[in-house]
Design a protein around this nucleic acid. Sequence first.
RNA 1: GUGGGUGUAGCUCAGUUGGCAGAGCACCGGGUUGUGGCCCCGGUUGUCGAGGGUUCAAGCCCCUUCACUCACCCCA
Length: 423
Amino acid sequence: MIQLIRGVRDILPEEVGLWQKIEKTATSLFENFGFCEIRLPVIEFTELFARSIGQDTDIVEKEMYTFLNKKDELITLRPEATASVVRAYIQHRLYAVDPVQKFYTIGPMFRKERPQKGRYRQFYQINAEMIGVDSPLADAQLIFMLVELFNRLSVSDISIHLNSLGCPECRPGFKKTLQKFISNTTAKLCSDCDRRKDKNPLRVLDCKVFACREAMKDAPSITEHLCNECSEHFEAVKIALNDLNIIFEIDKRLVRGLDYYTRTTFEVQTGSLGAQSAVAGGGRYDKLIESLGGPSQPAIGFAIGFDRLAEIISSNSVEVSCKPDLFIAALGEKAKNMALKWSCDLSLSGIKTETDFSDKGLKGQMKKADRIAAAYVLILGDNELGEGSAILRNMTTKEQISVPVDGIVENIRLRFAENQKVL
RNA sequence: GUGGGUGUAGCUCAGUUGGCAGAGCACCGGGUUGUGGCCCCGGUUGUCGAGGGUUCAAGCCCCUUCACUCACCCCA
């Protein structure tokens, strides 16, 4: 048997209802906030990701699916969506009419990591990106919209973590301050932190090893080393969030692994996903568009982990069904031919109709109708054919009536149209 | 890439010191000739993840390998 590739998975029909519900909730909410859908390819030139995410990040260094095409160009299955959104914004000069553009997009991303709970090699994200707005009010609005999505999906076990990473003006200075603190500390860091303390000292703040957390307990905080502009921006975001009654906590260890982030970063965390606590995350990337060759426009966005969101909702079990309204139990060849026509016509008129074309007896077909939870069964056998009628049975109340074969589709259609008071 | 756990029927899982491959659920048939659920009776279902080794004999012991899973790293 051919099995699926490691780290990817099938979303089976019973789960798809939940996925559709999440998708509909998100898209209608985002559109109410003025975001428009954009659909993007899943492959791009590798350089796009190397330049946006950062050459030295783990994602680019070892987690991308990268191939050589026939023209010897390096192409990559996208590990995230923001880079592609920005590329499209620049390539199609969407800024020419109005530099302010708001997009959302849903689709699969790919990262070659060892799979575990809530982490797959093909995973799905819902992204929202707002380009061209610098105001801290935009940051607050975006976070408000994100929180509202969780509310609408009845996800309550979450917390909002907030931080600011500064900008190219103030971050290098903080990096040096932090490096000085680390080299002065006597405490022993784990081998990973020892390795990354020079290249990316911010990551040491994020380490989960107890010894490192202890050692970094009194480490300088970036929010205290922001330049005036960044500091004012961050304060304004906090005030705006308070005005919107968004409860959040400042998390100075929230550093994130993509190089393009500036200023505001945030994460939605949950306790119900094992070691994977982040279910959504995002932040500002004010310099990315310019660095990819576009106009100098600020931007902010977030990504929601679709698989993770579905996971935490399904543990609260949302029932989404695709039960048929009507099951046609036909006995004999003539009856089956009539059933075929009827079921096609009824399906077209919006009634979920199921038919069994096998040679099962009536008992077997009733059993099947029961198993798939059909609300009504239409029985057509030799007796009924002789009388020119069929039997319509309510599977809950066991009531049944005789319906003339002449005009039966219209008859049933009208019965279902009358507010489900079919029988 | 590193470490732990788990692989036996469609599903959930038993399987003793190595000795005929099991249960529940599901499915199929019958009881009830054309009426589902509940009940009763009967039946089907296996590369015991794969490959090799030890043995008269391996689901069980040994080696290798693969997959799943959880965690690390990192991230949504």
